[in-house]
Each structure stands twice: as structure tokens, then as C-alpha cells.
Design a protein around this nucleic acid. Sequence first.
DNA 1: TGTACATCAGTGAACGCGCGTTCACTGATGTAC
DNA 2: TGTACATCAGTGAACGCGCGTTCACTGATGTAC
Lengths: 190, 190
Amino acid sequence: MRYSQDHKAQTYQRIVKEASARFRRDGIGATGLQPLMKALGLTHGGFYAHFKSKDDLVETALRDACEELNGLCEEVFARQDPLPAFIDTYLSKSHRQTPEHGCPLPTMAAEMGQRGEASPIADETIRLRLQMLGKALGETEGDAQSIVMLSTLVGALLLSRSVQDSEFSDHILDTVREHLKQPLVKPANA
Amino acid sequence: MRYSQDHKAQTYQRIVKEASARFRRDGIGATGLQPLMKALGLTHGGFYAHFKSKDDLVETALRDACEELNGLCEEVFARQDPLPAFIDTYLSKSHRQTPEHGCPLPTMAAEMGQRGEASPIADETIRLRLQMLGKALGETEGDAQSIVMLSTLVGALLLSRSVQDSEFSDHILDTVREHLKQPLVKPANA
DNA sequence: TGTACATCAGTGAACGCGCGTTCACTGATGTAC
DNA sequence: TGTACATCAGTGAACGCGCGTTCACTGATGTAC
């Protein structure tokens, strides 16, 4: 059946959005194309009218997730003092509980590293994040502070998600959040 | 064929060791029992003479990986000033390149979080790590410093492994390593 | 404006494959006599 | 010590299942006349 002019583009976007959410929630390997299409009320065969392969979708969905997040972040980074707000958002219980609408790095970084050589998608995602953080931190020389902060944010969210004990999970988030919101001043020496 | 008395125990250990390596390198979902057994010169059917299920093996292998690492760490933590040595080891290129002999958290934490409720294996792994770090940091009150440090270590290793550009990957490791080795003194205020 | 035709997004059965798991079987060993 | 038997770690075919992918087909729509 042929549909109205932009129907294909709409379906394409629906697939990308659903995939982007599922990849971030369940990971790439654990996300099947059949269930994904079914969730959209479509059959799996139609997938290949839109994408060359699952890998093609992964690439597209990750890029889309990145852009979506940049959109959300711009709002935060437009404020007077963006850093505490960003940290609060990143290490919030809401971000922990809804990975499908959050940063792809905690769930997907491990799988991204094991993908084929030709895909610098992790590099792009990380570099973009560092740029944003660098600006928020007022970093003029190098990117040391933003690299350390991104590592800490990603690690803390990952750990808090992996833990079963919800009090322990909260404790991890709370502790790291409070630590990162302290002013970043380097001591001369101990 | 029936083998010598401790033959079964030896095979059991061989399976655990191989699984512990593969889970840490490839993740749980991407590790098949058939290839695993084949790599040990065994057929896959024999697996169920040793384990109730794949989940059973996962539990056992993770616990084994933890103990193995604690053994390695004890050596490091017996030194005079253990913390810099631990940081150097954790954020070394060797640790980045050989996940199969390293910390399970960067590769497996995401998958551990998605496993059934009854498995507090991630909690145990993390608590144990924090205890060790707490001692090395000379932490007397609370565990804030060790939680932040563990988050940063895990995040940095994860990011450095996910990245394709090897210079960028080195840069992440080097930056975080140098940052963490600075004396941990909290500034009064900015 | 009305009709015939071409398009192609989506359908759904089928492909080979590897997964975790089961199971009847084998045969070298330890044990009992 | 020698023989008959029980054990059970390991074998390998088979189970149903879901995966990514292919493909002949459908039929509502846009287009051409």
C-alpha cells in the first residue's frame, strides 16, 4: 500500500525513535528488530525499506539520541550557572530509572567499543559531550576537567544502575552529585 | 568415561576461568556456551554436568573474577603507598587492552543491572571494591571518596575502551590517571 | 473530471544460523567380591 | 590378585526458539492521459 507523501519519512522517524530508546534501555545486542517493529504496529519485513541493516539503524539511532540530548542540554546550558543543573540532571533518579531517554554512554559504551572499526560513533558522542562540559566548566586550556567529570558521571550512573539495593544506588548518586558540585579548585600540594 | 578423582573439579575450574575471561571480554549475552566449551576441547552437552544453567555459571564466574582480582589487589595494597599504584594499574593500557583479566565492572555492569532481581552480585562486587579503596584512601568517615574514585575509574576505563581513536583513548586514561593521583584535598570554597 | 496504470511501503512466510537446554548413550575408571 | 559391575564425566544429536535477512506479493495512493 502506498501512503501519503511524507508517510515513509514519518515511519522512518518512528523506527529511529523507538530504536534509540530500546538501544539505550536494553543495549544493542538485546534489542531485536522483530519486537521493535511489532511495537510500532509494523511487520519486521518492512524494516529493510528504511535501513540497509541493523548496523545501519544502530548508527542512525545513536546519532539521533545524541542530537536529542544536545537539544535538551542546550536548554540547561543556556542558564546562568549551568554546571550544577547539568550534574543534578545527569545524576538524578529519573535519569537512572529511564535510560531510554538518557545518555547512551552508560548502557552502550561497552558494546560500542566492540563494534566494527569503521564506526567512530562513540568518539563523536564523547567529544561532543566533552565540548559541552568544557564550555560549562569555563575550561580554557585543555579538556582535563571535562574528561574527569564525564568519566565520573558515566561511571556513577552505570554503577547506580547495576546495583540491586536501592538505598545503595541512591547513596552512590547522592555522594557523587554532592562531590561534583563542590567548586573545582586544585590544591597546591598535600 | 570416568576420570581420575579430581578430574571433575579440574574441568569445573577450567570452565569457570574461561567463562570469567569471556564474560569480561565480550559481555554475558555475547558469550555462547557452545564456543566456550569447544575452546576447552569439550562438547557443549557436558556443561550441565557442572552447572544448573548459564545463569548459574555467570554467578560463579563473576564471584571467581572478584576473588581473583582481590588476590591481585592485596599485593598492590600491601605496599607503603598503595593508591597511586592501584590507579596506575587500573588506568593502564594493559588493563584497557585485556578486559578478560581485569575488572568486570566496565564491561559487565550494564548487563548485571538488567539481570534478575535475585542476584546481588553487582552490589557485592562494588561494595568489596569500595572497602579496598576506602582502606587505601585512609577513609575513616563514610565512603564518599572511594565512591567518587571508583565511579571515575570505571567510567574512564569504559570510555577509553569505547573509543576508536587510540590517541584519544590514551588521552582519556592519561588525563584521569594524573587527576586522581593528585592529593585529595577539598578546597574550603571557590 | 474520470479512468488506467505504475509505484513502492508494508506484509508475512521462509532462509540459515546460533542460542540454551535435554537426553539417550558411551566407556574409562573406582569399587566390590 | 583377578574379574564383574556400577558410576558418571563427557558425547553429540536433537529440541524449540528468536535472531537478522530475503523475497514474492499486496493494494492504496499519486500520476498520466
